[in-house]
Design a protein around this nucleic acid. Sequence first.
DNA 1: CAGTGAGCGAGCTTCCGCTTGACTT
Length: 783
Amino acid sequence: MAKNLLIVESPAKAKTIEKYLGKDFIVKSSIGHIRDLPEKGIGIDIEHDFAPDYVVSPDKKKVVSELKKLAKEAETVWLATDEDREGEAIAWHLLSELGVDEKKTRRVVYHEITKSAIEEAIKNPRSIDRALVDAQQARRILDRLVGYELSPVLWRKVKPSLSAGRVQSVAVRLIVEREREVNGFVAVPYFKVDGLFNANDTNFHAELDKRYDNEQQAHEFLTKINGAEFSVKDLEKKPAKRSPSAPFTTSTLQQEASRKLSFSVLQTMRVAQGLYERGDITYMRTDSVNLSQQAINGAKEEIEKTFGAKYAQTRQYKTKSSSAQEAHEAIRPTDFSAKEIEGHNDNERRLYDLIRKRTIASQMANAEIEKTTITISQNKTQDNFIATGEVILFDGFLRVYSESDDDTDEQENSETLPLLKVNQKVNFAEANATQRFPSSLPRYTEASLVKKLEALGIGRPSTYAPTISTVQKRGYVVKESKEGTPRPYKVITLKNGTVTSATKTEITGAEKAKLFPTDIGSVVTDFLIENFGEILDYNFTANVEEEFDIIAEGKLSWTKMLKKFYTPFHITVEKATAVKEKASGEKLLGQDANGKNVYVKIGRYGPMVQIGDFNPDEEGETKPEDKPKYSKLRADQRMETITLEEALNLFKMPRKVGIYEEQEMAAGIGRFGPYIRHDGKFYSIPKEDDVYTIGEERAIEIIKDKRQKEIEKNIKTFAHDPEIRVLKGRFGPYITMDKKNYKIPKGKEASELTLEECLEIIKNDTSAGKKKRGFTPRKKAKE
DNA sequence: CAGTGAGCGAGCTTCCGCTTGACTT
């Protein structure tokens, strides 16, 4: 029987530590929190100092009973959960739930999973820090009060099953407000002038040191400098250095994996979890940029071996975020010499490579750069052209890793400039004044939202990915890509002594995997800001965190803090509940041809347009012809941006188009876009046709086309078994049976397949049994 | 999938932060 039971939070960590401690120790994990407030009901006795009703979580019953048994048999129970607020609380819950004498328990802490750190921790046990536990209770209970009192208000005022909370509601607010900024942004165009020069047989670009507001000014300037002589007025060389970024935390890993690998934050965490479980990387949910001494030595050794001693420069980074609790190390490889990892899929290899390079780069020398600025003047006006270039004198960490940036174009500064002298003449080739449109701040991606939340101190490494899932699951936010629209712009060119003007076209407004608010998201946000401004304030979390810190220092009672918060909060909840009207986001768009009011609002089934008002007579009756008319918004329309004309157009659908084969044809817009409906069948209307004006003749053409394609699609059918068909699809021929599709093996001619061969292919198909790997929610979604 | 729409209302929904596991064909 083992004398010692040591409990940590993560099973993978338990395995590692067990190796370090030897046979006198049995190491087990709690798998996170073991107790919590009950899921049903508030679970807090508010009248009696917010006494919480903790219950063992249903999915932790097994773990707890096993730990209980082992704890009883052990001489000493070591509570080795993380050294932060949540970890301290887990230790305290374990102590009270396992039913062992406190005298035979020890609390130990460490910041890194190394043999020396664990042994050192065992030598220095302490007792449980009750003040820190109280701070956690205050955090937990405040979140429950906010979440479970605000959500029911939304059920009454907006729609059932909605939710609100300290973290998610602010996340949605960020997205709603950014969308309004983007939509309200008016781009005031300007002209920038770019010159192409040649000197020492090298072409190079230089930009004019001023911009013009309009085409006329730009034109005038180019006309003025026609025939000018250009020379180097000034030359400046400045040394600069660039330093590597800190090793990864959860948030920075999510951002870089998004930019460099196009991973969603959930995908990043899933892949990292796999790497962690196999022992390839350290823990992936961390807010610390710290590396253990052992890790720094490992990185240094690897750098010296691969690149030479002058490339190594060890550093210890400091965390910028004030909310950080730093219970773990930064995310790093466990073994720096492992360049390639065995037995992993492509995504795991790519993420591992990113983590390894980032960590190694963080311990490498600065890059040394020489920045060159060349000022070119001319003899016609006082204006100068400026060329900038960069030469890397010593690549340092750049040899391994360079961080991506969300906001800037990376292709600039890539030009090599010729070696010039002051007063040297340069040859002018051409100059272009190009019309540019400034852009608004970009919409958030999942990863840039995480970055913003972290900067505000909202949420924790373990919750970034789930929060982003929650706001999407509730229908507040959608992740979407959008095709851009063409926009004309002017280019004025001076070349060969003449100035010419041309109009070109660029694509603008294209978006890839960006977060957009839904109408529900906007309406809920407006409602919450109006009624619960304090909670929706970007500083709310920071403010309560300050108080949690004071509680953790033992200088404030957690129940007092909660009471001070809850009393006024609860009054606003009751006030908001007492107001009968729904929060529908109703907006008057204008009047239709008959002078009836046209509104957009959220109805029972989502956003809609309403024409007309209710005007009941004395008996409270409304005549049927006076009742308002309704139409749902299309999927691509938003309450905030729909125009009166677009709203009225919705009522023109579905529209009678004509008769074909004695059946009526109607045009409409469905979930998959514009369609013609005929004899119960739907035919998509191609992009080049207008659903509002399409005529009978064209509609019949579309129907005939579709039928023809249907016929061509059938490569082969079998009289014996009409269920099985060989079809032509987007990716080539395939076999279909019972709504499932099967690939045709290479080397077989589709049109010559026999029924037996088809059955053989279907039988041998293996793709159906594929299992999806990943996390599923604790509770199964009811759908 | 191809479209509904006030009001009345049973009984349901919900938070944040720790952490992974998988009844049978």
